[in-house]
């Protein structure tokens, strides 16, 4: 009885107000649009593109120096890592223009002469809540630079620096791949990547200072 009534009612509604859009169509539109947004537009919005103040040529420098990476990125006497050289270190060679490149000319004019530090953008800088020390990795762990930093030493120009608009850190930490997939360590350096290696190599599962495990290794 009641079935009969409902059908009659439904038919009459269709007749008076035209055909209803298939719900599935709207579902698909929403679904597809969000996929485009999430995979395509979002990464473009999230990161701003910045350029290094000087288009640095690693390959050229590595050729010229004696000690490879360590010529400029060295350990200080107190064991701390110098990271990106300061102006003083650069000036050991570049007090005046010594080559023919335009970038060097620009470097000398804009930074060396006015004695202004170069505000390099650091691709691999971890957030401030992370305690990272090079010494245990490079000196004690005998790891080569390339293991984490990849083949940066062979590059002949400075890549675009993509800055996360939200956090202010480099895209390199999360990785170029927005899904977070990486083949090599230098393609991504998130917490899981650190711990994966620490677990695999069975090193420092606990903090040196507090002997506590887990978080305290890197978050002091």
């Amino acid at each position: 009885m009641s079935t009969q009534d409902d059908q009659t009612h439904a038919v009459s509604e269709q007749e008076t107000e035209g055909p209803a859009a298939p719900i599935i169509l709207f579902f698909i539109i929403g679904f597809a649009a969000s996929l485009v947004l999430g995979w395509g537009i979002f990464p473009k919005l999230l990161y701003s593109q910045k350029h290094q103040p000087i288009n640095f040529n690693h390959a050229l420098h590595v050729e010229e120096v004696d000690d490879g990476c360590e010529s400029c990125h060295y350990f200080r006497e107190d064991g701390s890592f110098s990271g990106i050289p300061n102006l003083e270190s650069c000036m050991e060679c570049h007090e005046d223009v010594i080559g023919v490149s335009e970038e060097e000319e620009k470097f000398v004019a804009e930074f060396v002469v006015p004695e202004r530090e170069v505000s390099w953008l650091v691709y691999s800088r971890q957030p401030d809540c992370v305690y990272f020390s090079h010494a245990p990795h490079v000196i004690a762990g005998k790891m080569a630079c390339v293991e984490c930093h990849g083949h940066i030493g062979e590059s002949d120009h400075a890549r675009v620096y993509e800055e996360n608009r939200f956090t202010g850190y480099s895209r390199d930490i999360w990785g170029k791949n927005i899904a977070g997939l990486a083949k090599h360590p230098w393609e991504r350096m998130k917490m899981d990547d650190c711990s994966k290696c620490h677990v695999r190599e069975n090193v420092n599962q606990g903090s040196v200072q507090t002997q506590k495990g887990g978080c305290f290794v890197c978050h002091k």
């Binding site: 719900i23 698909i28 996929l35 947004l37 990464p43 996360n164 977070g180």
Partner: peptide, 29 residues
């Protein structure tokens, strides 16, 4: 339907996970 489709699609993109991660980094720094 559009909203449900959008939500389902978004869940299959990195957007929510990435933003969650970023907001935790931002709020700790």
């Amino acid at each position: 339907a559009l909203a449900v489709g959008g939500a389902a699609g978004t869940a299959l993109t990195p957007l929510p996970w990435k933003l969650t991660d970023d907001s935790s980094i931002w709020s700790q720094n």
